[in-house]
Write a protein that binds this DNA or RNA. Structure first.
Length: 560
RNA sequence: UGCCCGAUGGUGUAACGGUAGCACAACAGACUCUGAAUCUGUUUGUCUAGGUUCAAAUCCUAGUCGGGCAACCA
């Protein structure tokens, strides 16, 4: 599906519908979308799907996308959340230009709409208590009953509503309801509440208002005011669409098209604001930007790039099917980018000494390491070598397993960029049985890691020179939950039982000198280990802290 | 048990009445100074039953299964 001015519009059912609208002329060819977060929490990867959809559609169809805060519940909303949301959308790479709006900016006009609705006999002030309200509403399978207030004279409703805003009544004493159909099979049409009294101070309007519009009332009017063409929301609002349409028609207002799509579910994590808030509030994680979290702030702190997240959102598609996306796809997206871009360095995460017996004590030399084999334009760097090195503890086995082609007694292995070495022995701590040191000899003829005699060396391992290495803090992040679908639980079981206690492991690694020179915010590949991000908050000059973004794929076995 | 929505390999998605394709994952092989990357190949799919049609993943009906809806939340 394409339009003349947008030759490469990716197809999904929403874009298809927009193309139809453009063909039929329903919106005169305009395309205006909006991303409407409630500022009551931090944005997560699920919101990224919506952001990419809304801003992506605007870009594809040469329209525009507004950022609008749906701030109609002062009890839950805070400026901190507004700031974090603005920051996150910007970081993701989207620009709303001058189109930053707040539903609270429309309070005056929304209030006027309520007055108008009353005047038209399509809304009334109801004095039922909350309990009575529920009782009168009925249940989905049984019709409700009409409130005694339903036929309150218009003048009286007008008077009451005005006095609700004047602060004359207590919260809960009255509500304003749309007069629709108490027998509707759609419960949302059973005279829904559209305004309630709240004495709470609002983060933007302070105490100016004593009545606040409900979502259904505020949202459609806000969309209408902004001349939105396509009001895209998640599946749970499907049953609200008749109300959305009814309200705007009752007010004779311009009506956008609401379209619902399935929200993102990701394996091994949770994407519910309530659960995320619980993890933060109860200190199961260090904060909203904890790198274990699927929040955009967390992914950012972990080292995920905005482009990888955008690619992910493109790849998952948009449908009405409520499925579960494999987090492996997200991981693939960031690996794909970092494989192309990230410089390679050597760091030993679990160091053990390797002593080269026939290498002169005082000798040292440097080897040239390729920064990025995928992009040789990134050049090379020098890495120092000496008699005592650190290698990865798991790269040595006293009794090598089948198909293990790293170091073992009597075996040869290549030290990346340096020499071929042959293991001559090792020492063990008598008490613990732990290996404390490995010994080997090197073959001077293999300088640079080459084999002039043509001999094949299957294993190549990374290393650092003990005398030149710097110990650095490395934070090994893993999936937050141990279960693919942590929310799939028997009745009454808390989702936190599935929390992965190994989702964060803090270690001291030995890194090559090159690494200490890099600045906070840089992303690198530790050869054979994974991609790491220099934590911009906790790193200090000369003392970087590394966050593991994601491991390298490993077809041998579980690597650290 | 009322209403709304949905169902294509393990996962996500395409095919808009005409050869079921792509990506991730998994597995196998090639290559490799990263057990990475790259390349090649393989396994696995239209929820069920009817109907319409020369032809159905696609249209119709019924069923099954899954999700949503009964905040003065969004």
């Amino acid at each position: 599906m394409t339009t003349p001015e947008t030759p490469e519009v990716p197809a999904d059912f929403i874009r298809d519908m927009i193309v139809e609208h453009n063909t039929s002329g329903r919106f005169g060819g305009r395309v205006v979308t909006r991303f409407p977060p409630e500022p009551n929490g931090y944005l997560h990867i699920g919101h990224a799907k919506s952001i990419c959809l809304n801003f992506g559609i605007a870009a594809d169809f040469v329209g525009r996308c507004h950022l609008r805060f749906d701030d109609t519940n002062p009890e839950k909303e805070e400026q901190e959340y507004v700031d974090s949301i603005i920051d996150a959308v910007r970081w993701l790479g989207f620009d709303w230009g001058s189109h930053l709006y707040y539903a609270s900016d429309y309070y005056g006009r929304i209030y006027d709409c309520a007055i108008e609705l009353i005047k038209r006999g399509k809304a009334y002030v109801c004095s039922l208590t909350t309990e009575e309200f529920k009782e009168y509403r009925g249940v989905p399978s049984r019709p409700g009953r009409e409130s005694p207030s339903r036929n309150r004279p218009i003048a009286e409703s007008l008077d009451l509503f005005t006095r609700m805003q004047a602060g004359e009544f207590a919260e809960g004493q009255y509500v304003l309801r749309a007069k629709i159909d108490m027998a509707s099979p759609n419960v949302h049409l059973r005279d829904p509440v559209i305004y309630r009294i709240k004495k709470e101070s609002h983060h933007r309007t302070g105490t100016q208002w004593r009545v606040y519009p409900m979502y259904d009332f505020a949202h459609c009017i806000s969309d209408s005011i902004e001349q939105i063409t396509h009001s895209i929301c998640t599946l749970e609002f499907e049953v609200h669409r008749p109300l959305y349409d009814w309200l705007l028609e009752a007010l004779d207002l311009y009506r956008p098209q609401q379209i619902e799509f399935a929200r993102l579910n990701l394996t091994y994590t949770v994407l519910s604001k309530r659960k995320l808030l619980e993890l933060v509030r109860d200190h199961h994680v260090s904060g909203w930007d904890d790198p274990r979290l699927p929040t955009l702030a967390g992914l950012r702190r972990r080292g995920y790039t905005p482009t990888s997240i955008r690619h992910f959102c493109k790849r998952i598609g948009v449908t009405k099917f409520d499925g579960y996306t494999d987090v492996a796809l997200l991981e693939f997206c960031v690996r794909e980018e970092l494989n192309r871009d990230a410089p390679r360095v050597m760091a030993v995460l679990d160091p053990i000494r390797l002593v080269i017996e026939n290498y002169p004590e005082e000798q040292q030399e440097t080897f040239e390491a390729v920064n990025n084999p995928e992009n040789t334009a990134q050049g090379t760097h020098l890495t120092p070598f000496s008699k005592v090195l650190y290698i990865e503890r798991e790269d040595f086995q006293t009794d090598p397993a089948a198909k293990f082609f790293r170091l073992a007694p009597g075996r040869e292995v290549r030290l990346r960029y340096a020499y071929i070495v042959k293991c001559t022995g090792f020492s063990r701590d008598a008490a613990t049985g732990q290996i404390t040191e490995i010994r080997c000899t090197y073959d001077p003829a293999t300088r640079g890691g080459n084999t002039p005699d043509g001999r094949k060396i299957k294993g190549t391992i990374h290393w650092v020179s003990a005398a030149h290495a710097t110990p650095c803090e490395v934070r090994l992040y893993d999936r937050l939950f141990t279960h693919e679908r942590p929310e799939d639980l028997p009745e009454g079981v808390d989702f936190k039982v599935n929390l992965n206690s190994a989702a964060l492991e803090i270690i001291k690694a030995q890194v090559e000198p090159e690494l200490v020179r890099l600045e906070g915010g840089a992303r690198v590949q530790f050869e054979r280990k994974g991609y790491f991000y220099i934590d911009p908050v906790d790193s200090r000059p000369g003392a970087p802290v590394f966050n593991r973004i994601v491991t390298l794929r490993d077809s041998f076995g579980k690597n650290l």
